[in-house]
């Protein structure tokens, strides 16, 4: 039980990078970008191929990020210069990337089990300093028998995700960042203040997909393989993370919202890992579970609001009735 939740949090933190990317397009730019399903795999594929061919994992990961950025820029170009509807631009790019990803990989699956990854040096340094020991001790003290293998990955992933979060927070408050947000809020207005909305959309969707590709590259290295099908439904997972996070943790400021998105990604993973422990559910049911979670996260807040409003009106009516009674 603990180990499976631990695993869920660990991968949730890495998927949070993808969710931050989705947040930038869906919320900041108001651009429903479906490229994600493809660019996630692009990140994984580029990293895997380069690692297998002997490149350093760091170079491989950085190249994967660049590939994701380019993929996003192409989607942005299709929309702004090709005047194609945003949804369709994303779908077209997603389909195109499926083939491109297969070309990059040369096969539909690349195993990375015996390769060294970005995590390898971190884990070996961590373990040589025996940093997991105190955590193992706490776990044992709490009376939980099985302890995860290493705590290095979760902390390393957390640091990367937090760095990306803080960079995003800062960027969205810069002059360019403000213009980017205004592009999603009121295009006509920001254009009248000399901002080139086309470029902002292209770069914005690019940055978003760079984050997504980084997430894909890290998931592949963490999970030990890249697969052509690993991105299917990724956009819905990203959306689920954004929506769950916003509903649970609020959207008061940008820093709060990005933190909420990370929290949402982790909670989504925990919910899925819990659901998979239910006996009659199988791995194949994952996408159905995801869809149900997203629907629930979308509908529940509205239902709660409606209920609250109903009760408020009822109370008002009663007040008036009692006043009239006197």
């Amino acid at each position: 039980m603990f180990v499976s939740i631990f695993g869920a949090v660990e991968s949730g933190i890495i998927y949070a990078l993808m969710a931050l990317g989705v947040y930038i397009t869906f919320r900041v730019l108001d651009f429903p970008d479906l490229t994600v399903d493809g660019s996630f795999v692009t990140g994984a594929a580029v990293a895997a191929v380069m690692i297998v061919n002997g490149q350093s994992p760091l170079t491989a990961t950085i190249t994967a990020v660049a590939a994701g950025f380019i993929a996003g820029c192409v989607t942005g170009l299709l929309h702004t210069k090709g005047k194609i509807n945003p949804l369709l631009s994303g779908i077209l790019m997603m389909i195109a990337l499926y083939s491109i990803n297969l070309r990059i990989m040369g096969q539909s699956n690349i195993p990375l089990l015996n390769e060294s990854t970005v995590f390898t040096p971190v884990v070996s340094l961590w373990e040589s300093l025996n940093l997991s020991a105190p955590f193992h001790a706490i776990i044992a003290w709490l009376g939980i028998e099985s302890s995860p293998r290493t705590w290095a990955v979760i902390f390393f992933a957390l640091i990367i995700t937090l760095i990306i979060k803080f960079v995003t927070d800062y960027f969205l408050k810069t002059e360019v960042g403000l213009a980017l947000r205004a592009t999603g809020d009121n295009k006509k207005m920001i254009r009248s203040f000399s901002a080139n909305t086309d470029i902002l959309i292209i770069v914005g969707v690019g940055i978003s997909n760079a984050f997504v590709a980084l997430s894909g590259a890290l998931i592949a290295q963490h999970g030990g393989f890249a697969d052509a099908g690993m991105g299917i439904g990724m956009i819905i997972i990203g959306l689920a993370s954004v929506i769950i996070g916003e509903a649970l943790f609020g959207t008061k400021s940008i820093a709060r919202t990005t933190l909420a998105v990370i929290g949402g990604a982790i909670i989504y993973r925990i919910v899925v890992s819990m659901a998979l422990r239910v006996d009659f559910l199988e791995t194949g049911d994952m996408k159905l579970i995801t869809a149900i979670i997203v629907v629930a996260a979308l509908v529940t807040p509205k239902l709660l609001d409606a209920q609250r409003e109903k009760r408020r009106r009822l109370r008002k009516r009663k007040e008036i009735a009692t006043m009239a009674g006197k």
């Binding site: 810069t174 002059e175 403000l178 205004a182």
Partner: peptide, 26 residues
Amino acid sequence: TAPSMTIEENLAMAFARNKKRGLKPG
């Protein structure tokens, strides 16, 4: 104006109208 942004952020965007936008805080 951009409704979901604050008054100061809106003014900052207007302030940048005749300048080049950079990566400094708005």
